[in-house]
Design a protein around this nucleic acid. Sequence first.
DNA 1: ACAAAAGTGTTGAGAGTACACCCATGC
DNA 2: GCATGGGTGTACTCTCAACACTTTTGT
Lengths: 216, 216
Amino acid sequence: MEPKVTVDVVIFTVEDSELRVLLIKRSKGPFKGCWALPGGFIETDESLENAAKRELFEETGVRDVYLEQLYTFGDPKRDPRGRVITIAYFALVKAKKVVPKASSDALETKWFPAHDLPELAFDHGRVVQYAMKRLRWKLEYTTVGFQLLPKKFTLTQLQKVYEIVFNKKFDKRNFRKKILSLNLIKPTGNRTMGVAHRPAELYSFNMRIGKIVEIL
Amino acid sequence: MEPKVTVDVVIFTVEDSELRVLLIKRSKGPFKGCWALPGGFIETDESLENAAKRELFEETGVRDVYLEQLYTFGDPKRDPRGRVITIAYFALVKAKKVVPKASSDALETKWFPAHDLPELAFDHGRVVQYAMKRLRWKLEYTTVGFQLLPKKFTLTQLQKVYEIVFNKKFDKRNFRKKILSLNLIKPTGNRTMGVAHRPAELYSFNMRIGKIVEIL
DNA sequence: ACAAAAGTGTTGAGAGTACACCCATGC
DNA sequence: GCATGGGTGTACTCTCAACACTTTTGT
């Protein structure tokens, strides 16, 4: 008896000073009506990464975002239908690009605050916890954080992303000193406009979009 | 058409000042007669981790060693028989404990130097490369290194493990200062005996066997 | 003028790195 | 007594953390 294989994707974004996860309300199968991670069975002749990209696109309409394999969950009892193994991925998207859509699997698709999730189907609660641990690690030791921001961004926006993910404040001067010393971003010469205070310099990431650097 | 699912285990040890990987010579199926990682199909009602432990025990006769999930490889073309997804694990064992055995899958079981491997079946070459990257990382940021040593060990033995895995020399004084400042090990009061030079203090790991600590 | 966020330097503590000699034992 | 690995301290550099005020804009 062969097991079935699915991919599930933990899709993160930062919006309104909050870390959010995209969930779907299941329209069929076990846990019908329950919130769950977007995902589905892999197709023949489709690599695991492509399956994850396909699921991501079906739920959010975005392509070309940061995506990495997270962990494979295979407890024999994790799905009441029988043996189902899931390869979990995690993705970072820019909030504005996403148009959550309903699909054949989902009655509804919605962003939830990562720190206040509903009960999830299967072992998806554990999967999200694991993804958040990985996200913190990645933000600390690589440049994935830029994936959550638009092409041009202010240092304050960047700092906010870090503060939201780590759920703690950083010192403004130290943060800026550290970031600038890494030579990963450069000022564009443009500034924010129409704000009721001093305008901020807009920076851009030096690397080609999607390139992730380890900063150990 | 459901995919098949296997687990493969990259088993490392350190012996004779060398990092080694355990390989089997395949007795059947594709790549018959070729060297490959130990592994096999998962059984119904067996968790992924238990499947990996079972494979490890079948090939080496050891239990209760360090084992962690590495990555899942699922390229549609990785196995000529059809769609086979493999969940790779990596394990660290103490060389002396292992009695490589032949098994139903293997004509022969042998340790190979990690830096001089033969051509491997499937995509196992890539799997081993990935495992070595993870091993270096783990050794740098956690205490898994102790898994490769006997209960009592000298600081020089410990340093050798690090030098072998990283393939570079460390300064003796700095290494000892660093290790001792972490308070992970304590002197046992015993010393090496019968050596043609000054005997060395034997240390032991503070934590219960198998406990891994992050040292970020 | 006032509210609101942008921007900017210095100091002290701790960690990492480089480096050379004496010690205890077996033969 | 000599060969072999065991064991030890100091000085410099660099990174991280703590800390407060001035600037620019819109209203």
